[in-house]
């Protein structure tokens, strides 16, 4: 029984069957990659997992509890954190404030109107946030405006913000999309480090095969809304069905 169990999930947008009949099991403390050509349903699947979309059929269980029908913030509080394709951070706030927010969310829950304490005097939270910045090698940038950072650093901050919540499952949506090679490699190293140092399950959606094969322990290949194969990276590499899905047989190359 994996920490995340997706069973018979289907989702239709009008005439388009985005997800056919998806079954997926992500084992605890592994890195599981979901790959597939454009339009395979990767993003739809991810949006189902985080509560942004509700599937037409099937079930999604996280740690034995259904996530279906829950709001994104409720699913996050269950222990699923999401990293977006374009880094989603609080651009108007300082780096330290960016890190304070998930720390407050972790300790105080979804809504606590604590209007009369000074946030920087909450030692417990500030220390936790500074420690997270330290771990992300961002302590020097703590007073910078988050919007002014490079894309790689924004990604690093976003991942740090997710980790500050101590999630059990970290979902990454093309974490290196649009990044320069150096930033991509830094992100891979960071994710490797996270995987080695923490008890955390990582599910990653990615186009870049270099990233996938550097990180993943299991790979699910999705094509036209259904899982094609699921196996270890070595087996996936030479799998004929995967080649077919990516390159096409007789149709135009996608």
């Amino acid at each position: 029984m994996g920490i995340l169990e997706v069973k018979n999930v289907g989702k239709r947008f009008g005439g388009l069957q985005a997800l056919g009949d998806v079954n997926l099991s992500v084992a605890e403390n592994t890195v599981h990659a979901i790959i597939g050509p454009n339009g395979a349903g990767k993003s739809t699947l991810l949006n189902v997992l985080v509560g942004k979309l509700i599937p037409d059929t099937g079930s999604v269980m996280f740690d034995g509890k259904s996530v279906l029908g829950r709001k994104p913030y409720e699913i996050n509080q269950m222990g699923i954190s999401r990293v977006f394709q374009t880094p989603e951070i609080f651009g108007d706030l300082s780096v330290l404030e960016n890190m304070l927010i998930p720390c407050f969310a972790k300790r105080d829950g979804a809504f606590t109107p604590n209007a009369f304490i000074d946030m920087f005097r909450d030692r417990e939270i500030v220390e936790r946030a500074e420690q997270m910045l330290e771990e992300m090698n961002m302590a020097d940038a703590r007073n910078d405006n988050a919007a002014t950072m490079s894309r790689g650093n924004k990604r690093r901050l976003e991942i740090g913000m997710c980790l500050a919540q101590e999630p059990r499952l970290l979902l990454l949506d093309e974490p290196t999309a649009g990044m320069a090679r150096a930033d991509t490699n830094n992100t891979i190293d960071l994710l490797k480090q996270i995987k080695d140092e923490r008890d955390i399950t990582i599910a990653i959606i990615e186009h870049d095969m270099h990233v996938v094969f550097s990180l993943a322990e299991r790979i699910t290949v999705l094509a036209q809304g259904t899982p094609l194969v699921e196996d270890t990276p070595d087996k996936i590499k030479g799998h004929p069905k995967v080649r077919e899905a990516y390159l096409g047989e007789s149709q135009d190359a996608a």
Partner: peptide, 10 residues
């Protein structure tokens, strides 16, 4: 968006 995905109900 980030707020909602950080476990906070806006």
């Amino acid at each position: 968006q980030r707020m909602n995905y950080t476990g906070l109900n806006s």
